[in-house]
Write a protein that binds this DNA or RNA. Structure first.
Length: 272
DNA sequence: AAGGGTTCCAACCGCGCGTCT
DNA sequence: CAGACGCGCGGTTGGAACCCT
């Protein structure tokens, strides 16, 4: 069947978002919550495609996003999950709170892929590229990235990739992983049930609540969607991110804070 | 200092899937 | 049941930032 473009091309802006556009989008979503992306640009007064708004929000404006490079623990988790799930970035991202599929995909393509190739591991299949060429690599390749090896507490480091969930026992200062990372990795890598559920494409267990980051009024409108309460999210947001929330000025996600949030965002844009 | 090459990531594009009518 | 529609996903790209010579 023929498919209409997601938005009429005329009058729809493309390219980098301005601070003003970000402000409008944030304001709209915080006020109304996420619903019907197609209608968002019109209602928010943006000359953007709804799809573009969704991407901007999910990949950049979401207040619960972490920033900066993935920690070693997160990286290892991505490798583990990729070995099982393949390029299903959204599924992988669902297991890493504060990370987006786009971010993980980018990180995979720019960093992890190279590391694996350097180690002689096929980043697609997670099998050794040439067993005869690099026999020593075979012992640290496919099997090691599977959770079974994680349970064995065998530590192997190769080109910066730590093939072990026991890495979590290191202090956060040593590997820049937060305690949350450790808990996250432990809970996933040591939990066969969870891994099975991953494999079976079950709903995310770790970070399913971010999308209810909306003010009380909007949250109430989404009660039928099973979102957690505003209080729960507020607490979670206040606790969770060392960059995303605070650097965006969303420490207190109250409508009274809109101005400061916007100002913070503008400051970020000016720094660009 | 300049320029060319490389890296990185935000954003776009097209397709598939689920839902609605 | 089939077509229309909207959303989300994964792949790709453009250009800014960074690095190297």
């Amino acid at each position: 069947m023929g498919r209409q473009p997601c938005c009429d091309k005329l009058g729809v802006k493309k390219g980098p978002w301005t601070a003003e556009e970000d402000k409008k989008l944030i304001n709209f979503i915080l006020t109304n919550g996420q619903c019907c992306w197609r209608a968002v640009p019109k209602l928010a007064g943006l000359r953007r495609c709804g799809k573009s708004c969704r991407l901007r929000w999910t990949n950049y404006l979401r207040p619960d996003l972490k920033r900066g490079l993935l920690t070693e623990a997160e990286e290892q988790l991505v490798i583990d999950l990729h070995g099982r799930l393949g390029n299903r970035w959204s599924k992988i991202a669902a297991r890493l709170p504060g990370r987006t599929d786009n971010e993980i995909k980018n990180h995979w393509n720019t960093h992890i892929k190279k590391k694996l190739l350097k180690r002689g591991i096929d980043p697609v299949t997670h099998e050794p590229l040439q067993k005869e060429a690099r026999p020593e690599e075979s012992s640290s390749s496919h099997a090691d990235i599977l959770p079974e090896s994680s349970n064995n507490n065998v530590t192997q480091e190769n080109d910066g990739i730590v093939i072990n969930s026991d890495d979590n026992s290191r202090s956060p200062a040593e590997n820049s992983s937060s305690p949350e990372d450790s808990i996250l990795l432990d809970s996933i890598c040591n939990d066969e049930i969870l891994l099975n559920s991953l494999w079976m494409d079950e709903p995310p267990l770790v970070d399913a609540s971010w999308n209810s980051i909306i003010p009380p009024a909007a949250a109430n409108t989404n009660d039928d969607m099973g979102f957690p309460s505003w209080e729960e999210n507020h607490t979670r947001l206040s606790d969770c991110q060392d960059f995303g929330v605070h650097d965006f000025g969303f420490d207190c996600f109250d409508s009274m804070e809109f101005i400061s949030a916007h100002n913070t965002l503008e400051m970020e844009h000016k720094q660009y």
